[in-house]
Simulated assay, not measured.
Amino acid sequence: MPHFVIECSKNITELVEETELNLAVHQVAAASELFTLGDIKVRTNSYSTYLVGGTETGSFIHVFANIMQGRTVEQKAALSKTVVERLTELLPSVSNIAMNVNDFEKASYCNKAML
């Protein structure tokens, strides 16, 4: 925990390597000091078919962050803003860059280490 899933149009991965996208988001998450470094997970899913504004010609990046509950709205907003700023620096020609943060409920979360 946390999980950062980068979803993007396929042409994004032609502009920058997936590993570079993952590293950029990982570095922002680590710098936020909201998470334990070894717990941060980042991955990218790119799509060859998609619509942006009703056409397949646009580019997009959307980061979905799933984190354990307990952070303030201000902390989550700052995290989103900083990730979007970093991705904008990395890909200034991409106009559709966004992020949202979803909370996991501590009471219903389980992983293998908890068994």
Rank of each mutant, 00 (worst) to 15 (best):
L15S: 11
M99W: 00
T19V: 08
S46V: 00
Y47T: 02
I40K: 07
H62Q: 10
T72G: 09
A31G: 11
S9A: 02
L15H: 02
L91S: 04
K81P: 01
A107K: 15
L15C: 03
L37K: 14
L21C: 10
A77H: 08
V42K: 04
F104V: 04
G58M: 06
Y109T: 02
N11E: 13
V73R: 03
R43Y: 07
V101T: 06
L23P: 00
S32P: 08
C8D: 09
T72R: 06
I97Y: 11
N96V: 03
K81T: 14
M68G: 06
V101Q: 02
T44W: 08
E85I: 07
N100D: 14
L87S: 08
R86V: 03
E89M: 13
M68K: 14
P92R: 13
L51N: 08
V16C: 08
V63F: 04
S108H: 00
S59Y: 10
L90W: 03
V5Y: 02
E14D: 10
N100T: 09
S80T: 12
S95D: 13
V94E: 09
S108N: 01
V73K: 06
D39Y: 05
M68H: 07
V94I: 13
T49P: 00
L87E: 07
K10I: 03
M114C: 09
S32W: 11
K112E: 10
T88W: 04
V94S: 10
T57F: 09
E7K: 15
